[in-house]
């Protein structure tokens, strides 16, 4: 069935790259990452939901692509910050080049 959600499905494949890209600029915490990505996607909250983000961060941390530390937040609660690792940066480079290839193929063959 073709609907608007199919576009979101394609974008979900990009999420790890998007999250790593956000962390590559500076360390960030869950809510901050979500807001950052949401603003990048022009406020589209359907692509990255909270229930997707935290398991994704957990997975990235288990793979050693990000590491976490705690810092006191502005509102009295501790924030868990995520930081991209060296492996994460390498992985991000590969992913970006992969997506560039995909983008080139799309431009050449599908988008006229």
């Amino acid at each position: 069935m073709v609907n608007a959600q199919n576009g979101a499905q394609v974008l979900k494949g990009l999420l790890d790259t998007l999250v790593l890209q956000v962390l590559d600029t500076k360390d960030n915490y869950g809510f901050g990452i979500l807001q950052n990505i949401s603003s990048q996607l022009d406020g589209d909250n359907m692509v990255l939901r909270e229930a997707t983000l935290y398991p994704l961060l957990h997975r990235l941390e288990t793979k050693g692509l990000v590491e976490s530390y705690w810092k006191p937040g502005q509102r009295g609660t501790d924030r868990k910050y995520y930081k991209i690792t060296k492996d994460g940066k390498n992985y991000l480079k590969y992913r970006i080049s992969d997506w560039k290839n995909v983008s080139n193929i799309l431009k050449k063959h599908l988008i006229t």
Binding site: G30, A51, G73, T77
Partner: peptide, 30 residues
């Protein structure tokens, strides 16, 4: 907890009541 508190505060700043902000923050968690 941190996420919920942040989300609720953000929503309240956008002008909705505390009660509604709490419901929305929880709803967004999935």
């Amino acid at each position: 907890k941190n996420h919920l508190v942040e989300a609720k505060t953000g929503l309240m700043q956008s002008g909705i009541t505390e009660h509604e902000a709490s419901i929305k923050a929880v709803g967004s968690m999935g």
